[in-house]
């Protein structure tokens, strides 16, 4: 389990991470989202013990990272954005070194390395110099490094950067498999990946944690539709808001009287479509378009990134 309690990290006067708190338990995969420069990597650096927090604390398996860093770090595996490889070492030598610095018992070391290499599918390059490996293999070797010592908490910064689609798919399966025994936090720009592999999403904007919610809740509980009608908004909007199952209506484009666009958020499994057809036929307003909005996490990401708070979205 990894626990962040009111962590703040300042670079001089600039606050890169502001008062962030959350807990990730073993069995959970949490996606860390945010725009470039939002504070994701700084947050991961603080969680991994690479940077000390300016305020707040991090606990790994209940051990305070600031008070007992050596002990707490035994339970942490970190895969940074830039894979920390020594090009002069082979993949196996590199993992031996990683096992040594993570105090893996020498008698168990070779067996442990074999298991990690098999898990991350890098056995075929074990005697190859890490500096000559392809991007995908380097990334997997980096992941293998993070797994040395079987830490309970795994932190990954952009873990699938450089993967081809097949490798990305294999990675997602691996993360799901690892999640049974680990608490995993991964940052990614690939929202589809986060949606597929993560149980929960933490979204950071300008250093603040602006959203912490389950992925299923976000993507399945609030279906959204784009509605384009040929009629004035003043006629359609008030009764549309009153329709059963409608949670929220947003007027996107107030065009000419012939074309008005709305985004309609409805309750899951509501009979929204039937009610809408009845309403608009009664008003004699033709429907030009009614389409479900696909990736609500992406929508949410764009909206949060543009400065809207999650509260404003619901």
């Amino acid at each position: 389990m990894i626990q962040a309690e009111h962590i703040t990290r300042r670079y001089g006067a600039f606050e890169a991470v502001k008062d962030i708190s959350f807990t990730v338990r073993v069995g959970e995969v949490v996606g860390l989202l945010g725009q470039n420069g939002a504070g994701k990597t700084t947050a991961l650096h603080v969680l991994a013990g690479y940077l000390a927090p300016s305020a707040g604390s991090v606990r790994v398996n209940g051990i305070d990272l600031a008070k007992k860093p050596q002990e707490a770090k035994r339970h942490l595996g970190y895969l940074p954005e830039t894979i920390p490889l020594y090009p002069e070492l082979t993949a196996a030598e590199y993992l031996r070194f990683c096992c040594d610095i993570k105090s893996v018992h020498p008698q168990d070391r070779e067996q442990h390395i074999q298991e990690i290499m098999a898990l991350t599918d890098i056995l075929d390059v074990k005697d190859q110099l890490s500096g000559t490996l392809s991007k995908g293999y380097r990334q997997r070797l980096g992941l293998a490094q993070a797994l040395c010592g079987s830490p309970e908490a795994l932190l990954m910064d952009e873990p699938t950067a450089g993967f081809d689609p097949v490798q990305s798919h294999a990675f997602r399966r691996l993360v799901r498999k690892l999640s049974k025994k680990h608490a995993i936090i991964l940052s990614s720009h690939l929202l589809s990946e986060v949606q597929e592999v993560c149980d929960r999403v933490l979204m950071i904007a300008s250093g603040r944690l602006v959203m912490d919610q389950a992925v299923a809740e976000d993507t399945q509980q609030k279906p959204r539709f784009r509605l384009v009608v040929s009629g004035p908004s003043s006629l359609v909007l008030p009764p549309l808001r009153q329709l059963p199952g409608v949670r929220r209506v947003e007027l996107v484009q107030r065009g000419s009287a012939e074309k008005t666009t709305f985004i309609v958020e409805v309750e899951k499994d509501s009979a929204f479509q039937q009610a809408l057809f009845k309403l608009l036929s009664g008003l004699s307003v033709p429907i030009m378009e009614l389409s479900p909005l696909g990736d609500s996490l992406e929508e949410l990401f764009l909206r949060v990134s543009s400065g809207q708070t999650p509260e404003a979205l619901s």
Partner: peptide, 14 residues
């Protein structure tokens, strides 16, 4: 420069 210090500093080594 190689950013391998991240490996060392986040390891249990003092």
């Amino acid at each position: 420069q190689q950013m391998t210090d991240q490996l060392l500093i986040t390891s249990p080594l003092s």
